[in-house]
Amino acid sequence: MSFFRIKKNVYPLFAIVASIAIIVYALVMAKRASCSYFLIGAYFWIMIFGCFRSCLRMLPIYIIVGGLFSALFYLATGVASSALTMANRFGGIFLAVAIGMSVESVTMTRNLSQLRCPRSVTLGMLIATSFTTVLRTEINRVRESMKTRGAGSILNPKIFYRAFLIPFVTRLVKISDTLALSVETRGFALGKVEYTVYKKENIAFSDILFLVGIIVGGTLAVVL
């Protein structure tokens, strides 16, 4: 019965396939008006299937960036279709990013671990995805210390190199050493070691419906 349950998030691998499909459709049909309809439909479809927040977050960015590029292209070419092309292309990419944002790094790691992906790859992906917030904090700290020491403007290349880059990389090395120790003490091992996945990611009916909806929508937009 778990197959028919309603899931909060899309199956991670299906999310990747869906985002690739959307980008491909958007790039291939960028010049057609049907592409815009497809993208609007896909936007609401994605929203229904657990990407509500990321879709809302992406919308203002898309309006600003997509609008800016469309306006630029319209001014450069004087043809409305080139503005539409640009809007469609950006729409496709922002939709794909919205899907990507809704996939949690932990679920992706679990999914890949279930599929017996090498441990080194899953560990690396997990760290790379979840490290962005730590990086932001570290960047702020280094900048704060620059201010405290009166190091000068970060826009000066010499100051940027000496007072920002070097302390920043030093912090990264220290963090990585601590994190590696922490990972090892939690019993994580590389190589051919038996392991279990605590929470398994299984395909549900809603995941199939999500993917099929996008593929059917894209195909209809191409054919009609």
């Binding site: 080194s120 090395v173 990585s176 590696a180």
Partner: peptide, 9 residues
């Protein structure tokens, strides 16, 4: 592990 962690960071 420490190599993988550093490369990931």
């Amino acid at each position: 592990i420490k190599d993988i962690v550093f490369l990931a960071i």
